[in-house]
Design a protein around this nucleic acid. Sequence first.
DNA 1: TCTGGGGTCCTATTCCTA
DNA 2: TCTGTAGGAATAGGACCC
Length: 425
Amino acid sequence: MDAFYASVEALDDPGLAGRPVIVGGTARRGVVASCSYEARAFGVRSAMPTGQARRLCPDAVFIPGRYSRYAEVSGRMHEVFQRFTPLVEAISLDEAYLDVSGAVRLFGPPGEIGAAIRRAVRDELGLDCSVGASAVKFVAKLASEAAKPAAAPTGRVEGRGVVVIEPGTELEFLHPLPLEALWGVGPASARRLHRLGLSSVGDLARVPPATLVSALGRAAGEHLARLARGEDDRRVVADREPKSISHEETYAHDRFDREGLGTEALRMADSVASRLRRAGLAGRTVTLKVRYADFTTITRSSTGLSPTDQAADIALIARGLLAGVDLGPGVRLLGVGVSNLAPRAEGRPPEQLSLLAPGAAAPAGPGDGGRAPDRLGVIDAIRARFGPDALGPAALVEPGRGLRLKSPGDTQWGPRGDGAGGRRA
DNA sequence: TCTGGGGTCCTATTCCTA
DNA sequence: TCTGTAGGAATAGGACCC
């Protein structure tokens, strides 16, 4: 999708059309998540600190972002894709790979399918998308980049919409591109490759793979050598299972209060547990992430014997890990994640050996025998109906302010604008 | 007012066990 | 029983993606 979040905002508020729109964290320490092409004309880019974006384009409309709305539009987009092929691999809310090799007889060659998808998305969602087509997965991705509109100093310049790279012409397309265009080449790898005098994908194809391996390590080097030759045998995989689920937040001000951060860990554990249950998953490894004021980041993890999807278990481990962490330098970000995931056994409550006594998270109701899963089902049902703030651990209730829970994505792009964050203890 | 959040994958190191 | 070693799992950190 083109400038997805900003385009959705313009869709819902037609007054924004044609104006510089910047979606992201609007508070201190926020970043740009998406911006319209009119904003890009001022040099604004995604992942840029919001403050910098404000200096570059002070007249832009700044919008905090509504993750749940974008997810909803993304869902409708996938319904469109499904009409063309069941083989849809979501990369993110706004990007997906489609394997249309089985759809050619029905819908025509890839270029025509791409055009039809664009029309359908335009007609039914009112949004623009760009399509790249190729027999090679990562080439299709790069072709979609080539199909996108561009930002010129004068504003938005229309793109080609659909770019098809015919079989046999992949190298012709790839080799002039800068090596940063390749998936997996970020700033660190680009620096190393530039030091070797390499700057284009063609340069990568001309050096022996061993040169790339010595510069980037075995996996990355060999992978890059293959990409530079236009080789990529990865298939489109529909319905990928997640491998980890996490929740992290940056605070507007650095925090030093161990007790307050412990409560934060509980809140995040509760959010992660809730999402695990919704996905029908449970995990064995709990990871605590701490980013200090100077941006150095550490993680501490612990693996249990059996998987859990319960907030109390996750919180207990996370807070145990937190106890071993030095808070001296000041904490700007805290995160809690769960990995080593496995599907929760169907039709049977998750009978893992709880690290807490049954009912430790909340008293068991009469007649439920203290079985946490029934209680959790009720908690999830209440939240689904009345919102995430409807119910939660008592420790998260702030006197006079009620429960301080948040929907996933509420703080997607930086701290909230209400000055949330701890005081220096 | 520099640097979000949710992920994946890879590598190096450490620890445990046979 | 002690020691060295090899391999696997766990752990930690980093690069990268959208």
